[in-house]
Design a binder for these strands. Structure first.
Lengths: 196, 196
DNA sequence: AAGTTACTAGAACGAGCGCTCTATTCAGCG
DNA sequence: CGCTGAATAGAGCGCTCGTTCTAGTAACTT
């Protein structure tokens, strides 16, 4: 996280690798041994740093991924004054990242969240927290642009949901178009508030 | 499928159970033995009807689930003349189903699609087909309401994506609100086309 | 009635899972 | 130097996975 980044510690490597693998393969589809292998750590090290086992690793990984996405969101929203343009920029940014990863690196928490829905595991909670945080960031931006509290909240919920869904659609169809379309339409929707 | 429904055959039971389990637990998280058990079939029967193994079962199940959702979509859209009201009714309908299932029965293909993204398995293809089919249904409705071809397509893509994402958000937060909000905002968005 | 096909039934296999356990290495410190 | 605790290393446990295989049963054909 520091600009003058030291070589990541074993613990950090485990978290980073776990985040990427869960993002791509889901929670169930990712094995502890695979995480250890790709992080150049051994099984012993993983259980040393995360006595809680696989679930504890996943919680740390998802928390990290959630924060990372928050930063991306904040940076992109800060880059544009007009809220319509800002939200559309987010969609474009997501589309870029998706294409560059070969349509593999989508939303970091969706896959894990869906797999653990029935259970009331800690993973569920972390995913819910991440989603709430992202909504809050968008709502904050809208409020700063003159939206009422209620409008900001409802539109922010819609924006996060739409981006989430458009990203999945984009991944499945291997095309930027769903995200581009969502960006344009969300911009149009937000425009109906600012120009009214 | 018939109104005078005969007791479902073994093959039908396998497909129905597999569809529900994959919807709730994902592809990786659902075992062939679990499917056989809950469908009151034996392993031998499963492999008799689906020599292709687990993937073949999943393909059949996802195809069925995709069609079932298509019917729900068509019925709900047919129930309202105004396109805004029609799309909002879809969101309400999804919210109802979600709540009634204890926030467990979400989109039938999202989970499986996300898990198999890297691989170019047949499952991917079925999910992509389902999504395209749903978009087509929404686009058809919009075109029937006077939308141009291009507008209809772009808005339909956005609608399906937004509903998809809102459903995931609703599941994670165990609340109808994300879907309700998405429904209201999508209606507002569509209104900007019909009243222009 | 005999033969053939469609279906049911479940034991068994190798592989991989999450996790535990013991052994070893290594840095810091009195 | 010897002690100590953190970190590394990986063999092995019990279990479940998807799949295969061999039998047994039911139903239709001729």
């Amino acid at each position: 996280m520091s600009l003058y980044s030291a070589p990541p510690s074993t613990r950090e490597r485990i978290v980073l690798v776990a985040a990427r693998l869960i993002q791509r393969q889901g929670y169930v589809g990712t094995g502890i041994k695979q995480i250890a292998g790709e992080a150049q750590a051994t099984l012993g090290s993983v259980y040393h740093f995360f006595p809680g086992g696989k679930e504890a690793v996943a919680v740390a990984a998802l928390r990290h991924a959630g924060k990372e996405f928050s930063w991306l969101l904040e940076d992109t929203l800060r880059g544009e004054d007009d809220p319509s343009a800002a939200v559309e920029a987010c969609a474009v940014e997501l589309a870029r990242g998706l294409r560059e990863s070969g349509w593999v690196d989508g939303c970091p928490v969706t896959a894990a969240a869906l797999e653990t829905l029935g259970t009331d595991s800690a993973i569920q909670q972390v995913c819910a927290e991440a989603l709430r945080g992202w909504e809050k960031i968008v709502a904050e931006k809208l409020r700063a642009c003159g939206f009422t509290d209620q409008d900001a909240r409802e539109v922010a919920t819609t924006v996060i949901g739409a981006l989430e869904g458009a990203e999945v659609t984009a991944q499945v169809s291997r095309s930027e178009e769903p995200l581009r379309a969502a960006g344009r339409q969300l911009a149009r929707l937000i425009g109906t508030y600012t120009q009214a």
